[in-house]
Amino acid sequence: MSIDNDPYKEIRPYNDDEIPAALDRLINDADFINAIIKYRFSHKSAWFKQLVSPIIKFYLKLKWSKLKSVDDIQFEVKNFMGSTLDKTSNGVTYTGLENLDPNQAYLFISNHRDIAMDPALVNWGLYNAGHRTMRIAIGDNLLKMPCATEMMKLNKSFIVKRSAKGPREMMKTLGQLSAYIKHSLETNNSIWIAQREGRAKDGNDMTEPAILKMFHVEGRRQKIPFSDYVKSLKIVPVSISYENDPLDVAKANELYQMEANGHYQKTEFEDIESIVTGIIGEKGRVHVSFGDVVTDDFETPDLLAQEIDRQIHDLYRLYPINLLAAGHKSDSITDETKATLAAKLRQLPENAQTKLIEMYANPVFKKK
């Protein structure tokens, strides 16, 4: 298929032949270079930052000159993930991968706590178990800067156009997205998508039936019943559990502001800052559990959502801080656990503290 006839060109990730040009655009993007300088040299003076900019561009040009394909990029991301998890976690464990066929494409639907780390952790497990990495669904609300779009499309991300307006445009967008997901699976490319639009900031992991309905838009076009079409997608629920959420205080504050004031005003680059904090922040222990392929008949999106929720809640790994927040008594709850939770609460106004407690307690209640 030529690029001119590609119906998915505007939403799909880059192909091998598009990688060098995309990297070149990224290196020459002032916002991208400035972002690196901001996070690596924030304490340095303005003249130093101006001086270091061409050096960073030269370094990246040299470092990335050997990257010619999607697999090359994935190898670089794998190395970055390894070193990042060594620094920011107390170990990542996996269960359920042994039940999946490395030669089969799956539609992975996971709970959603962190913008970048959720799909990255699923990919990390797949890569190390000999599976191909997935294509990742990402909302266009996170792609306000051209360099963000470049980075995501380089890393096998495809765009979900949440900003579509009007019934006709929305139906066209949903049709394109639904068809692209099916096309990816049929060409042996697994997909990751969150169970809901936006993160579960309150720790309440629930699947939105609207997302499952979107999957079937292509099925309806092909006149395939919902239950049959869903089985063809090879859906695998995935449950991701973080012992420590690096953004927990920020999320609790946002939830409190929403409740108290009826709205919460994001700063211009808050989503980007959340991505960075999620990547470099301390996570404690992390567990990723892959569920069973959905093979039963589910006649409606609501019934399918219940099954995905059941698996995600059952597979969620609880940590001592979850049990403490939920008011449980357990030998695993140490003085250190109590001190950790108390330190988090001290960073919030008293009225907002219950939001943070609920965030860690909700997975316990859902598991019951």
Rank of each mutant, 00 (worst) to 15 (best):
L212A: 06
P146W: 15
D228H: 06
G262C: 02
K223M: 02
E270F: 07
K266C: 06
V230Q: 11
E150D: 11
T267L: 13
T207D: 06
S163G: 12
A194N: 07
N189K: 13
A210F: 09
A260T: 03
E197M: 11
L174R: 08
G175D: 08
T173P: 03
E218C: 14
K266P: 05
E259D: 06
H183A: 11
I240T: 01
S241A: 04
N189A: 14
S190C: 12
G175T: 10
Q257Y: 04
G262Y: 01
L154N: 06
M145Y: 15
R220M: 13
F215P: 09
Y256C: 01
I275G: 04
A194K: 04
T187M: 09
T207E: 11
E197I: 13
F269C: 15
W192G: 11
I181K: 11
N261H: 09
I279W: 05
E169M: 11
A164C: 04
I272K: 14
A194E: 11
N261R: 02
A250C: 04
T277P: 05
Y264S: 02
M151I: 15
E259R: 04
E218I: 11
R221Q: 14
N261D: 05
I181V: 15
G278F: 04
F226M: 01
I240D: 00
T149S: 13
G219L: 06
Y256V: 00
K172G: 14
Q195H: 14
L212T: 07
K283G: 00
K234V: 13
N204H: 09
M151S: 14
E282Y: 13
T173D: 13
E282R: 12
K213Y: 02
P237Q: 11
P209K: 03
E169W: 02
T267N: 14
N155H: 15
A252Y: 00
V230K: 04
H263I: 03
S274K: 05
I159E: 01
I272F: 10
S239D: 01
K172Y: 11
K161E: 13
D245I: 00
N204A: 07
F226N: 02
K201M: 00
S227D: 11
T207R: 04
G198F: 07
E218H: 12
H263K: 08
E243Q: 08
E218P: 09
E186Q: 15
D228S: 15
K251W: 00
G166N: 08
L233F: 10
